[in-house]
């Protein structure tokens, strides 16, 4: 059992506030990115992030590690909350352009100090093919199923799995680096 699993267990079993806060610190930034990728609105995304972590607090009992990773569970909640929001009247009035995918916004900031790991990632993303960018965006950040992805990208269903492996592999970072 690794650190994340211990935290999740502690939070789930004891509703431990410290564990909850640590999980929040580990994941909130990425989840905000996921939500913003869908909503393209800063204020709305912050509110949805708040809602997502409230849901995590309230529904942690329903999480089971046998069904998937805690991260995957969180990713699911975030994507669904954001997608739900896009259907709201409030959101429709904002008339946001939803065609932008996560990689359009990714460019290495010039003046900002970034870690080596982030620098590596920026470089890798720049080299990534258009098809791989789209695939990763749909599968991970938009929550598309394999079938939906194959239809959207017009590729055979069987290739979605292998393609997602090869695309992500070219970006892959190692935790132990």
């Amino acid at each position: 059992m690794d650190a994340v699993d211990v935290l999740v267990k502690k939070f789930q079993e004891e509703k431990d506030l410290k564990a909850y806060e640590q999980l929040y610190n580990m994941y909130h930034k990425s989840m905000l990115g996921v939500i913003y990728n869908i909503l393209q609105d800063e204020d709305l995304s912050k509110d949805i992030l708040q809602e997502v972590f409230l849901k995590v607090w309230n529904n942690i009992e329903s999480y089971s590690s046998k069904r998937g990773r805690f991260f995957t569970w969180l990713l699911n909640i975030s994507r669904n909350a954001a997608i739900d929001k896009t259907r709201s009247k409030e959101y429709k009035e904002l008339k946001k352009n939803q065609s932008i995918d996560i990689f359009v916004n990714i460019s290495q900031p010039e003046e900002k100090e970034i870690s080596d790991e982030e620098k590596t990632l920026y470089t890798k993303i720049q080299k990534l093919s258009e098809n791989c960018r789209k695939l990763i965006d749909l599968i991970f950040y938009k929550g598309y199923t394999q079938k939906e992805t194959s239809e959207e990208l017009d590729i055979p269903l069987g290739t979605v799995k292998t393609r997602s492996r090869s695309c992500l592999n070219s970006l892959k970072l190692s935790i132990n680096q």
Binding site: D2, L17, E21, Y24, N25, Y27, H28, K29, S30, M31, L32, G33, V34, Y36, N37, E42, S45, K46, D47, L49, Q50, F53, L54, R69, F71, L75, I102, F103, N105, I106, S107, P109, K112, E117, E118, L121, Y122, I125, I136, F140, Y141, L168, L171, K172, L173, S174, I175
Partner: peptide, 29 residues
């Protein structure tokens, strides 16, 4: 699996070029 997770998290984190900050944790609490 942990490496995939880490990569996906990092991509999501750096996708925010506007230095967008979440509401403070205190607000959530």
């Amino acid at each position: 699996v942990k490496n995939i997770e880490h990569t996906v998290i990092k991509i999501a984190e750096i996708s925010n070029h506007q230095e967008m900050k979440a509401h403070p944790f205190a607000k959530l609490m």
